[in-house]
Design a protein around this nucleic acid. Structure first.
Lengths: 192, 192
DNA sequence: TTTTTTAGAGGTCGATCGCAATCTAATTTA
DNA sequence: TAAATTAGATTGCGATCGACCTCTAAAAAA
């Protein structure tokens, strides 16, 4: 089935979008190309006309997921001009976000996996980390840009760690307590 | 080749130990039973005499890894009675620990993976999280046990998140900055 | 107590059977 | 015609299991 040039380009984007979600849900090793393509409404044979390899797709999907994630941060902040940082904290450290395995933060969903990937995937994560830090920087009560950068790093680490931990425990109360404790510390740190 | 009862028990422990390391290095899905057993000096056929399934082994290996990890915290603290918390922070948020994929913290190495596992694996991680929190609790300048628990949770989240992030980026300077920023915030939080 | 049996635990090797990633030939239509 | 997609083939590894073997450990017999 031949498809128009623009349609083909759309298909490519669809595959990347689907992959960015399914990788988050099941891990890079947890989903095969067949299911991945099926999720995009295509068959596996079409894969290698669009991507060089599964790792190539992992790179594209990582970029897409990270961009989407930092975009959500910017959006949340923009929607609450009175307290942009508070808005980011509230949504990120929420029970809802804990449950959002598919669309949630890729640093949480794929952090351990990304640490085992090649430099190209890591480069995407590195860019994503920097983008998130930039968003935080903008809203932190910082004395100088250097002090602010350090605060942003600690805050990002706390947030990522809290959601990660909240997902590896069964007890919902413990999970919520972890999120709450992190939120409190992050608010303090940002204000200090 | 039949072996003695104690030898068999030893073999079982060896498999668990090897698995606790290889799972951390390559993820639950990243290593097969054949290589796992080879690492223990046995053949794959012996596996099902000792374990019901790969998931069964994942549970045992998770427990082993978490116990070892919280043990390291206790040991580090015990070795520095003057500043137990500082000792834990220094070793955990070090460049060395960042590079210790095999023996490092399982919450970092397997956090994303564990979130996708069944409740039995998560139960081991939950117990591990609680054990780590207990160690922190003991050394935090806390007003009451409740305030201290919250602090411990935020500190643990920050530490886990920082090492995770430090491993998903390529740039060693950024990685170190993340660890340093987390260490500073954690020290402040513990003293507050 | 000492010897002899014997059940079966713990092991090896190899088979199964499905799914993985990857590539090629054929099909379709812009 | 030629680009885009497909179905199907290939090749290899995944978890799991079964047949068989060896000897330990515990019971039975001396």
């Amino acid at each position: 089935m031949r498809v128009s040039r623009t349609q083909a380009a759309e298909n490519r984007q669809t595959v990347i979008n689907v992959a960015s979600r399914l990788f988050r849900e099941r891990g890079f090793d947890g989903i095969g190309l067949k299911d991945l393509m099926k999720g995009a409404g295509l068959t596996q044979g079409a894969f290698y006309k669009q991507f060089a390899s599964k790792e190539d797709l992992a790179v594209e999907a990582s970029r897409r997921a990270l961009e989407s994630a930092s975009g959500r941060w910017s959006d949340a902040a923009a929607a609450h001009p009175d307290d942009p940082l508070g808005a980011v904290i509230s949504f990120y450290l929420s029970g809802d976000h804990r449950g959002e395995k598919l669309d949630g933060c890729p640093m949480v969903a794929l952090g351990s996996d990304a640490a085992r990937q090649g430099p190209e995937v890591k480069a995407e994560f590195e860019a994503g980390v920097r983008a998130h830090l930039d968003v935080l920087d903008r809203f932190i009560a910082g004395t100088g840009q250097e002090a602010s950068r350090g605060k942003a790093m600690a805050i990002l680490a706390t947030m990522v760690g809290a959601v990660t931990l909240s997902r590896v425990v069964n007890d919902p109360d413990l999970a919520q307590a972890l999120l709450d404790a992190a939120a409190e510390q992050v608010r303090d740190a940002a204000a200090a």
